[in-house]
Amino acid sequence: MIETRGLRKSFRARKGTVEAVRGVDLTVQAGEIFGFLGPNGAGKTTTLRMLATLIVPDGGDATIAGADLRRSPGEVRRRIGYVAQGGSTWDTVTAREELVLQARLYGIGKAQARQRAVKAIEGFQLGEFADRKCQTYSGGQRRRVDIALGIIHSPQVVFLDEPTTGLDPQSRAHLWDEVRRLRAEGMTVFLTTHYLEEADALCDRVAIIDYGQLVAEGTPDALKREVAGDVVTVGLNGAAPRAAQLLDGQPYVRQLEPIDQGLRLYVDAGATAIPHILRTLDGAGLSLGSIELHRPSLDDVFLTKTGRSLREE
């Protein structure tokens, strides 16, 4: 449904150029929820804006819903919906008025635009506030209106830029349901997020982007399986550097990453590694704050690929 090859974009900033996206190759299948995961400034929004025809790529090509991004951006526009990271409504008009206008901007006739607005208001449960001015909406309500606007013309693909950022857990869960409903209706959803749980729970497949380049792509399960083995987190008030020296190079430790107040160790099997770890630390007289064993998460995927944690921000 979406295919990109070598997509790149740099911006001229005051201090030299920023290479926001440095060659992205992606394939998104029809009917899936595809997650684009990455830290702040990784190039998620820039990639989305290129795919949504808002900015012209410096290099590379893309086909979206069968239309060529460079040769027929107008055709791409008709087939996609895009919901920006910030808001998208005027303050002094109502959601219903916005929905009707947006449908009409897509070339839909007046009567049908009204019908579509009614349907969207039902579908996204906007009825309670749809005839109030947009400036009175809560964050979650606003976000639902934004998404309703993005899909008012029933596009084949919809791009959602950080649809749940800043929402409370309840509104987030509500929005996840809306996104799943879009998939059930046959839409392909391409969303960005920097919430690991969101990528994990909501997305069929994810791509992880860092500094404008993909570092991993696959289903959340496959990505986690790639990390393999188990993760042991040890809390070590202040003794972490010394412990790292001791543990690095031990046969049962595959990889080792310092974290806040401790270490994270990637091991083949937690049950056999933990006694070794304890013995090594104890032998050196290091006191242990805590020890924890868990299955790898997407954060571990990110950490093993980049050496940094997504959670640290």
């Binding site: 949504a52 025809t53 808002l54 107008g74 526009r77 008709r78 996609i80 919906g81 895009y82 920006a84 910030g86 808001g87 998208s88 409504t89 005027w90 303050d91 947006q102 901007l105 897509y106 070339g107 606007l149 013309h153």
Partner: peptide, 12 residues
């Protein structure tokens, strides 16, 4: 700033 221009610009 409100994002309404961008919203119009993704339409045809």
């Amino acid at each position: 700033r409100a994002g309404v221009i961008e919203r119009s610009r993704v339409t045809p």
